[in-house]
Design a binder for these strands. Structure first.
Lengths: 131, 131, 131, 131
DNA sequence: GTGGTCTAGACCACT
DNA sequence: GTGGTCTAGACCACG
């Protein structure tokens, strides 16, 4: 459970938390039913306001990635199932398109992008929670 | 020069303009030295505050994508060259990673992502301005 | 006496117990004077903190649904009578209104809601304790 | 746009706002594309913290009831479509069941409940946004 | 002007 | 101990 939060990034702190939790889940570093650090714990660990951590946890719960049990804490969902939201799907496609165009302007080759994609799927691979 | 701006998206309007200009350039729909609509023209065309268009143009100029000639108007740069900024490169890699993870949570298959990437490069295709 | 308690719900555990006891009473599955499991029994049966069960029993007793006889245990009241509290009545009306509005937003038809209501009253049916 | 918020209720303030907006929409008192009061406006009107109003608006947006346009304000969605979430559906059914059981304990007759339901649908009727 | 993010600190309900 | 709610007040990005 090591978080790497950077307040200098223009990505909101709570989103950085969301991203990292999802990444750790996807990579199998966090297993279903595993306990996450409590709001207060994590907030003091990464020196951030508890409300900010809470906001991230709430959003993760809304997405079905984690679940909270009253008085006991927060845990990785054991019964995650895909959303298949067409709006999100479209948003992701746009994000990919934008990344490709931006990469083109920075002089990154197509092969580089494809190898990155391959690399990301390697990291997830095999550990896929649905398998 | 058809812009597709949607104020309901959570992407800032000025960024949407930037994205679309860059996309059109990458696809060859806008050629070097081609004239862009004036701030006033564009702002009335897409019903938007002129300041917003101005902000987008300023940023595009800063990135070297377009250039303004006083009294003549705004044009696509003819001498654009890649930046190779390692920070931007890293940011793009992170964006790609996040898109891959998010797609995983929405139930999008690896093949779908790869086909999208291929599709985007097809669109840019032989029209690459520096080829 | 089968309880179905789910700590993942956002309904407090002690309220879930209260609901289920009242439901079983209303359906006639628990008859007046019938003995309830002791706090310890129930808390170990549904794997829950004894304090939580105790809290539920206290509230049920306050509402007159059950009664505790020191040294003998806890029993369903035989002399329950309606409260006719106008504030509770209003609260229930509001809850129903909210459920109707929410159902509308989820796309549930009026007929579905009415059939559910009918179903619930069927379950309570001729077993009404004061009939 | 009259809100009736009561801090003494045990329903959270932001939920009361959510309920009332949804109710006004369902009744046709708020039309699609209509502007809602700004966060600051509403918060000063009902003497509440802006963050609380913001939280309510965020949740309403998540549910697709309203939409926010950057720098312009918050508006009723014109393209609302049902969610058909089976989990929400089940939650609503449970809420209805609980209301029926509670009403039974307060001495409310079946006919009274049914007449309330009918009344609520009368208020919504005809003005249904999807018609 | 709009909403979005973050902080600091308080109080409460639940277990 | 846990998370949930609310307040007060600050700063920022966007239009």
């Amino acid at each position: 459970m090591y978080f790497n939060i950077d307040p200098k990034k223009n990505v909101p702190l709570y989103e950085q938390i969301i991203h990292q939790v999802k990444e750790m889940c996807a990579k199998g570093l966090l297993k279903p039913e595993e306990k996450l650090p409590s709001v207060r714990e994590l907030s003091s660990q990464i020196v951030i306001n508890p409300n900010t951590v809470s906001k991230a946890y709430k959003e993760l719960e809304r997405q079905g990635v984690i679940m909270t049990i009253r008085g006991r804490g927060t845990f990785i969902s054991e019964d995650f199932h895909f959303t298949h939201d067409p709006r999100k799907s479209e948003a992701i496609k746009q994000a990919l398109k934008q990344a490709v165009i931006d990469s083109h302007y920075v002089g990154i080759e197509k092969e580089q992008v494809e190898s990155w994609i391959e690399e990301f799927y390697q990291e997830i691979g095999g550990e896929n929670r649905e398998s």
